[in-house]
C-alpha cells in the first residue's frame, strides 16, 4: 500500500496526535478490540479498513476548490452545481459517496456561512475531515446568533449592508459555499483559480482573494 500511516508529519504540516509511543489509553484499547472483533466476525477486513482510511485521506479542500474554479469559468456547470451539487460533483469524477450536497453561491448581495449547531455535520466527502474549530462549542453556539462577530474573528469584516445567510446543517444535507471570484483574476487558468479557493472560503468563514502581484 503506498500510504504510510506512520509518518510523523502529515502532508498539511501539522503533527499527528501522538499514538504509537504514548501509554495505551482505555479508548485506544477499545478501538483495537472493536476492530479485531469486527474482523474475526467477518463484518469487515483489515484491508477494507485501510482502504477506507486512504479514501478519506484522499479527500481534501482541493476537490471543492476544483468544483468552485470550474463553476467560475463555466456558467453552465455552475447552473448544474447549484441545481444538484451531488450529481455535478460525481460528473467531475469525485467520489462523494452517498452524500447529499447543496452548493450555496456567494454574490454581491449574499454571504453564506455553514454551521451545524446540533453536532458537527460537514461535507467531509467533498472537503475531507473538518477543522477542529468547526466542531467546537464556540463555533456551533455563536454562528447562528452572531455570524458577523464570528466572521470578524476569522478576519472577514462584512458591511451591515451585506446580508448574511447562515445555514444550519441540521439533518441530511451537507453544504458548501461557492465564494465570489476575486476581481483581477480574468486571465488566470482554472487551475490557478482553484489555488485561490481556501477551505474556509467554502465553509463561508473566509473569502477567496486574488494573488498579490
Amino acid at each position: 500500500m503506498p500510504h504510510d500511516h506512520h509518518d510523523h508529519v502529515s502532508p498539511s504540516g501539522h503533527p499527528y496526535r501522538a499514538d504509537d509511543d504514548t501509554p495505551l489509553s482505555y479508548w485506544q484499547t477499545m478501538e483495537i478490540a472493536v476492530r479485531e472483533l469486527l474482523v474475526e466476525k467477518d463484518i469487515t477486513t483489515a484491508e477494507e479498513i485501510n482502504t477506507q482510511i486512504d479514501a478519506m485521506d484522499a479527500r481534501s479542500p482541493a476537490i471543492g476548490a476544483a468544483l468552485v474554479a470550474r463553476a467560475w469559468c463555466d456558467p453552465e456547470f455552475k447552473t448544474q452545481l447549484l441545481a444538484d451539487a451531488s450529481a455535478a460533483s460525481r460528473e467531475m469524477g469525485f467520489d462523494i459517496g452517498p452524500m447529499h450536497l447543496i452548493a450555496l453561491e456567494n454574490t454581491a448581495d449574499t454571504h453564506n456561512i455553514v454551521v451545524c449547531t446540533l453536532c458537527s455535520c460537514y461535507p467531509r466527502n467533498l472537503l475531507g475531515l473538518p477543522p477542529d474549530w468547526y466542531k467546537s462549542r464556540a463555533y456551533r453556539s455563536r454562528t447562528v446568533k452572531e455570524p458577523r462577530k464570528v466572521l470578524s474573528e476569522f478576519g472577514v469584516n462584512l458591511p451591515n449592508s451585506m446580508p448574511i445567510r447562515v445555514h444550519d446543517s441540521t439533518a441530511d444535507m451537507r453544504y458548501f459555499v461557492i465564494p465570489m471570484r476575486p476581481d483581477g483574476t480574468e486571465d488566470l487558468s482554472q487551475d490557478a483559480l482553484a489555488a485561490l479557493v481556501t477551505r474556509d472560503s467554502m465553509i463561508g468563514t473566509g473569502i477567496a482573494t486574488a494573488p498579490i502581484t
Binding site: H14, L118, K145
Partner: peptide, 24 residues
C-alpha cells in the same frame, strides 16, 4: 448538545491532524 444561540467564548484556531487510531 443543542448549542445554537448559546453564549460561548472566542473561536480557537488550535488544529491537529488525526493519528492512526483516530482514522481507524
Amino acid at each position: 448538545h443543542d448549542m445554537g444561540g448559546q453564549d460561548a467564548g472566542p473561536i480557537s484556531d488550535d488544529q491537529h491532524d488525526f493519528s492512526l487510531w483516530e482514522k481507524r
